[in-house]
């Protein structure tokens, strides 16, 4: 059984591509601008099948055994059983309803890690033709349109063409966990930072090209590490060995 799961895990092990180096693109209140070095990033989002294999190998991450410290009550709640997604959901679709801890444990089990927000933003700034398409109106409009629409049922990956780096589905499918999701200081409503994310928000993002990144910042700010959300998935990253 274990060997079988291992084979599945290997077979499903997604391809990674090299990203960067590149400039810091997440300037909307993100960490101080630090250029991003080269790193590896999964081409595809982690699928339900991938995650089922992980849960099989690490039963402590089954939804019936995972600690309340690390997951909330919605963790993998759309699965038919604690072991498998079941027939009612597309197994090849991205896994969602996973906490930051669970996503991190998954990546760690693959010898990987979650990407940082700076890494993710660098990868996600690319269109199919440009490394930085954030000033391209149609690119931005498509992202904002997805942000604006109520979520549709998740289907298999590969719904979008790979971008210039070779990464798929960075936009238009789900939100994604990043290692430093909790860098934005919005919990304290009285601090300057908290204020910046609320009523003063527009001031720092008058350029509509920044709105997509700004909305991701707002989204990440609302998260806590235990949260499992139906529209929040992840992919893994890895350091490039010197």
């Amino acid at each position: 059984m274990l060997a079988f799961l291992l084979i599945i895990a290997l077979a499903a092990s997604p391809e990674m591509v090299t990203i960067g180096p590149g400039p810091a693109v997440a300037k909307n209140g993100g960490p101080v601008d630090v250029d991003v070095g080269r790193f590896l990033l999964d081409v595809d989002l982690v699928s339900r099948t991938d995650f089922a294999a992980f849960v099989g190998d690490h039963p402590l991450w089954r939804r019936d055994r995972a600690r309340a410290l690390f997951v909330d009550e919605r963790y993998l709640a759309d699965w038919a059983s604690a072991r498998a997604p079941g027939e009612d959901v597309d197994p090849a679709a991205p896994v969602t309803l996973v906490s930051w801890f669970a996503a991190r444990a998954y990546c760690s089990a693959q010898g990987k890690r979650l990407p940082t927000s700076a890494e993710w933003e660098l990868a996600a700034a690319a269109s199919t033709t440009k490394k930085d398409a954030r000033a391209d109106p149609s690119f931005v409009a498509a992202i904002l349109d997805w942000y604006g629409r109520p979520p549709a049922p998740l289907r298999a990956n590969h719904r979008t063409q790979a971008n210039l780096w070779g990464v798929r589905d960075l936009h238009g499918v789900v939100w994604e966990w990043v290692e430093d999701f909790n860098f934005a200081l919005v919990k304290d409503g009285r601090s300057g930072d908290g204020g910046a994310l609320f009523c003063g928000a527009g001031a720092s993002a008058a350029d509509p090209a920044d709105y997509a990144g700004f909305m991701r910042l707002a989204f990440r700010s609302s998260l806590e590490a235990r949260f499992a959300l139906p529209v929040l998935g992840f992919r893994c990253a890895k350091d490039v060995l010197p």
């Binding site: 919005v186 304290d188 009285r190 908290g194 204020g195 959300l229």
Partner: peptide, 29 residues
């Protein structure tokens, strides 16, 4: 839970910083 966005509420009737905005900042679900 089906929401894609975090949301909150600022009521102009509130006396207090942010009108409730920071206190109600809420992730989907």
């Amino acid at each position: 839970p089906s929401s894609k966005m975090p949301h909150n509420i600022d009521l102009h009737a509130v006396t207090g910083p942010g009108g409730g905005a920071a206190s109600t900042f809420t992730a989907p679900g």
